[in-house]
Amino acid sequence: MAITFKSVSYTYQPNTPFEFHALNEISTKIEDGSFTALIGHTGSGKSTFLQHLNALLKPTSGTVLIEDATITHETSNKNLKPLRKKVGIVFQFPEKQLFADTVKKDIAFGPENFGSTPEEAGKLAKKMIELVGLPVSLLDRSPFELSGGQMRRVAIAGVLAMQPNVLVLDEPTAGLDPSGRQEIMHLFTSLQQSQHFTIVLVTHQMEDVANYANHVIVMEHGKIVKEGRPREVFADVEWLHDKQLDVPASTEFAFEMVKRGFHFDKLPLTEQELADDIAAMFKRRRRSNE
């Protein structure tokens, strides 16, 4: 499912002393089936952008096209419910939103609100808990007895239970340890393959951008300041440094090598690419020594 932004601006508290322009003339397209990474500093407008993806916010000016629905300033809230089902948002620290006394009720809450019978919703809960890699036996437990990582998976299962087409993830691995981070990212990529999701990921982890995304949007002061494939966006290391944004560790390392006189045809994005490039350099050196 594609989502298109056409000159979208958003102003918080317009015509008051607290007026704040969070988005300025944003135009971009999230392609169907793509994995888009959204990067930028705290306060750059990422969260405001996210909330336009399922019309939680409506543009102050401009239009957002969510599949074939047009959202403008004038769109009434009445017909937005089906849209919100199609675009699921996993907010930051989603485990904070758990509330029910059992895992099953928590996951089933969304579908029941959208008209599923308790039986259907219960079945869905069982399916979703398996999908996020937790044992079915947890369904009757209180979510608050689980570990932090398990709670986060339950919260994600609750969003998946709405069976969305687009999954929006706001820093889904923040606060997790390295193995927890890896598990959650694997979960999303395998879900994307098996369920054909479109994914929008907000992250500060540039390794994840390099490893998983095929489209990167860089935001600053409510504007898109760069957009493209990860290789294009990360090619200009100095520009990103200038914006105080990180690049993947491998790109950073290669950039340091370039400063010392090494040459790369294109800067590597991942450890594997960099190691391959360096291995090729050793091979060439050996050959020229012989």
Binding site: M257, R260, E271, L274, A275, I278, A279, M281
Partner: peptide, 26 residues
């Protein structure tokens, strides 16, 4: 990175070095 290079049969220094040290070595 050192581990990835080892997998590619490249002999790397035994002791730990930071990124700058690795670039020096390369």
């Amino acid at each position: 990175l050192k581990e990835a290079l080892k997998l590619r049969h490249i002999q790397t220094p035994q002791a730990y070095s930071d990124e700058k040290g690795m670039v020096d070595w390369l």
